[in-house]
């Protein structure tokens, strides 16, 4: 891999200081765990002259529960989230998704904010400079065309964060801060279905906090399942998060979200159709169809899109059936 280019590392002591530094610079990137960003910088993918380190900021380390729910600072590590007994108990899907990211050594420093803002990935993008140059780059970086869909006017790099679908089914909200102030929005509003402009953050903005609503009182089950080449470390070929509640054998609520298949995490719409029904084989098939219609993997990985398309539907159906079975037991 190439050497790191020259840059200045800023290590602010407070969030206000970090935002002030950012406001004073024309160009900069925030860094926390750096597990994805540093590798990308070394590959010449995300050139920057200034890195602003956020991992030490106490404001972003907040991790507490109150009557409103659970509040997780953006710099809380995935290891902390994945091992937290309260999250495992009340927000199982989030713990499972956090634990499914990369390897244990990555998770010790990788953060929830970083995972949400993870750069989109593609077979033609996450390569060395030499490899990319031999293809004249690609639309996402230093090139003209999208090699995945050559006739396309947009980039199809895949959003690959594991925690986003989990947080979507938990109806998380996020807080965003920038040099011009802060705002709180539903997590859905962070993403954009475009491989290049995959986040709606304005220049200089960062995610500072994830808010989860208080755990549901009704009998809920949630889980995350992930398809990848090596189970110990890889990015998702597809990932599915599901949350269900059930009463007297009938579904009372169903939420599903998918990652790794499109340039944005997909919240599956139309799940209300299953409320009041028994989730039998027929409904399972219908649910799988629903997921299939809304997800569209293309050749962004070495694995064939057709396989990923079939896998994601099967995973969605099986995961939901298993969760409902666990609730009935």
């Amino acid at each position: 891999m190439e050497v790191l280019p020259e840059f200045k590392l800023h290590r602010p002591g407070t969030l206000a200081e970090a935002l002030k530094i950012r406001g004073s610079l024309d160009e900069a990137r925030y860094i926390s765990g750096g597990t994805d960003l540093l590798a990308n910088i070394r590959r010449g993918l995300t050139p920057t002259e200034n890195l602003i380190e956020l991992s030490g900021l106490s404001e972003l380390q907040r991790f507490e529960a109150d009557a409103d729910g659970l509040h997780i600072g953006a710099a809380v590590t995935l290891a902390t989230i994945g091992n937290d007994p309260a999250i495992k108990q009340d927000y199982a899907v989030l713990a499972e998704a956090a634990n499914a990211v990369a390897g244990a050594t990555h998770r010790a420093v990788a953060t929830i904010g970083g995972n949400l803002c993870l750069d989109t990935r593609c077979l033609f993008y996450n390569q060395s400079q030499w490899w990319r140059d031999s293809n004249d780059g690609c639309m996402k970086y230093e090139g003209e065309i999208c090699h995945v869909v050559p006739t396309s006017k947009r980039c199809y790099a895949a959003y690959s964060g594991d925690t986003a679908p989990a947080l979507l089914v938990l109806n998380a909200e996020i807080e965003i801060a920038g040099p011009d102030g802060s705002r709180r929005v539903p997590l859905d509003d962070l993403f954009n279905d475009d491989g290049i402009d995959y986040l709606t953050l304005a220049p200089g903005e960062m995610v500072t906090m994830v808010h989860l609503p208080a755990a549901s009182k009704s009998k809920t089950a949630s889980s995350y399942t992930k398809l990848r080449i090596r189970d110990s470390i890889d990015f998702p070929l597809a990932g599915v998060a599901v949350r269900v509640t059930q009463e007297n054998g009938k579904v009372t609520a169903l939420d599903a979200a998918v990652t790794g298949t499109n340039s944005t995490p997909i919240r599956v719409t139309g799940c209300d159709a299953f409320v009041g029904l028994e989730f039998d084989e027929e409904q399972g098939q219908k649910f799988a169809k629903l997921v299939q219609k809304q997800t569209s993997p293309v050749q962004t990985t070495t694995t064939k899109p057709q396989y990923r398309r079939r896998a994601v539907t099967a995973m969605s159906k099986t995961l939901t059936q298993n969760l409902l079975q666990a609730l009935s037991a």
Partner: peptide, 30 residues
């Protein structure tokens, strides 16, 4: 080894915890 956080050959301990030293800036460990 891989030079990009994929192989673990560069693992060291920082304050007792395993870290990938190829994905860590020296100054971040001040």
């Amino acid at each position: 080894g891989c030079d990009g956080g994929e192989c673990g050959a560069c693992t060291i301990l920082a304050d007792g915890g395993a870290r990938l030293s190829c994905l860590t800036l020296a100054h971040s460990c001040a």
